[in-house]
């Protein structure tokens, strides 16, 4: 099965269903999703609230398991993996950017970026060097010693992006990354992510209903009631 995937595919979702139980009542969050994300894509999963965007992103990111169906990341089927294996896949292949930034409040900006590199066992000197380079590249070099509570939302999200790409992931998943930012800051952040996509070839998958995000998508999946109702390329 894995051999079927062509080399340029980074994500393949096959017939994925996700059913939650709300007080014993089954609720179908995803109903037979099929999609493919290719390397270097800048994809957006859009849709109204409750359409299943975040659920789909969580399943692609191995944070959640589908009730049915298969997920392939970089050609590897992941739905059947155990917790330890999934943590390892997330560490090595996926970077996450969250709506609420989710930086560790006890670490400063540089340490937050170094954290994922530390989990991969990269030596301290190398971590620091790479962390500072990334911060300079993302225009937040002067924030190295700042704790999250000393930074603005936009600054925190840039640190979160730096953290997400610090381990050279194959894929960055961003869940509503601009939802807590003003439009000017959101635009700068998206510029940055586009730049990373162009220059470093990092694949981005967003879940968002922010028009600013949607208009930059190279590929747009529109989700409604747990189903993809539209899949547009080169929008």
């Amino acid at each position: 099965m894995e051999n079927k995937h062509i080399a340029s595919e980074i994500v393949r979702v096959e017939n994925v269903r996700k059913t939650y139980h709300d007080n014993g009542v089954p609720v179908d969050a995803l109903r037979g999703i099929n999609l493919v994300v290719s390397q270097k894509d800048f994809s957006v999963i859009a849709g109204p609230s409750g359409s299943g965007k975040t659920t789909l992103l969580n399943i692609i990111g191995t944070l959640d398991k589908p009730t049915e169906g298969k997920i392939f990341l970089d050609g590897e089927e992941v739905a059947s993996k155990n917790r330890r294996e999934l943590a390892d896949i997330r560490l090595k292949k996926i970077g996450f950017v969250f709506q609420a930034y989710n930086l560790s409040p006890v670490l400063n900006a540089l340490e937050n970026i170094e954290f994922t590199m530390m989990l991969r066992g990269i030596p301290a000197d190398e971590r620091k060097r790479r962390g500072l380079t990334l911060m300079e590249q993302l225009g937040i070099g002067e924030l190295a010693d700042k704790r999250p509570n000393e930074m603005s939302g936009g600054q925190q999200q840039r640190v979160a992006v730096a953290r997400a790409i610090s381990n050279d992931p194959r894929l960055v998943l961003a869940d509503e990354p601009t939802a807590n930012l003003d439009s000017a800051t959101a635009a700068k952040l998206l510029d940055l992510m586009e730049q990373l996509n162009h220059e470093s070839g990092i694949t981005f998958v967003f879940s968002s209903h922010d028009p600013q995000v949607i208009e930059r998508a190279h590929r747009l999946f529109i989700l409604k009631d747990g189903q993809i109702i539209s899949d547009k390329k080169n929008v």
């Binding site: 330890r84 943590a87 997330r90 560490l91 996450f96 989710n102 989990l119 997400a164």
Partner: peptide
């Protein structure tokens, strides 16, 4: 919440 984020970015249970 923080542990959830740590797990998401690849922190193992052991760590």
């Amino acid at each position: 919440h923080e542990f959830g984020v740590d797990m998401a970015i690849g922190m193992s249970n052991k760590r």
